[in-house]
Amino acid sequence: MARYFLKLSGRLLLTLAVVSTAVFFLIRLTPGGPAVAMLGQDASPDAVARLNEKLGLTDPLLLQYWKFLAQLAQGSLGESLTNGLSVSETILGVLPHTLELAVAGLAIGMLGGITLGIVEAVWKDRSPDVVGRVLSLVGLSFPSFFVAVLLILFIALPLGLPTNGVAPFTEPGSNLQRVLLPALAMGIVSTAYTSRITRSLMVEIIGENHVRTARAKGVREGRVLVRHVLQPGSLPLVPIAGISFITLVGDAVLIETVFARPGLGSLMVSAMQARDYTTVQGCIIVITTVIVLVNAAVDALYHVLDPRTKTV
């Protein structure tokens, strides 16, 4: 077990190092560099040179990389090119809102998707399955940002619900009210995706021999479903939750923009529009860290839950 966790953390650090290095060099090797991107293609060479000086981009690349790593080791992601604020502080300020949104979206998606998938599998090829499958194909085709627009148009506006911003966690009521619709927008698409995977997983398990054994023993159908289908099936659902979470973090970029929620995604998009590369770089590194941690948690959870790894 200890060896497993050691290997896992090694893999995590490696992934993180590769991604941050890739982002660092990608940004600096852009044709013309950030200065050109910020000032536009027809900026005077003088202006570009001055900005490069100011951004510390005139140093040799390896020296810049060394400084970047040294900063990173101290937990600093540098300063924003547009407002000079500490990137790590800005990100830490908005990160909880994004995590809240993604977790809420994940909860809706997993709950809805697993339920729907199980119903489809149990009633395979009968009407609940046929209807469910068409519904999930429809859900899968909706861009989440369009779902968000529809929710605003048909739910928030008629009901007078807030359609933008976030509320501090110290006001749970108002906070929840503002996270509900964005989470629903993400959750609907996630439900469709999860239900398809759950269905095929459960159909497979229902066809397995041990389910037939349980029925031959005279076990009640309800118990067969819980103990012999859902319980073995819950293990493979763990990594699916991980993949969904990653998708949701990506979706947060769009949803936060629609609902004008401060968050990691909207921060990154506005930084991209403003060509604020240190902030972009910081956002990518933090997103990667979150994803890597979630993956690790999923991997570890799977490892802990799998009876095949318990006794060796």
Binding site: E208, N209, H210, R212, T213, A216, R227, Q231, P232
Partner: peptide, 16 residues
């Protein structure tokens, strides 16, 4: 009536 099956490898539930 009780039954035993061909494949004992898969006829038991792996998680119990």
């Amino acid at each position: 009536v009780a039954m035993i099956f061909q494949d004992p490898m898969t006829s038991l539930n792996p998680v119990h």
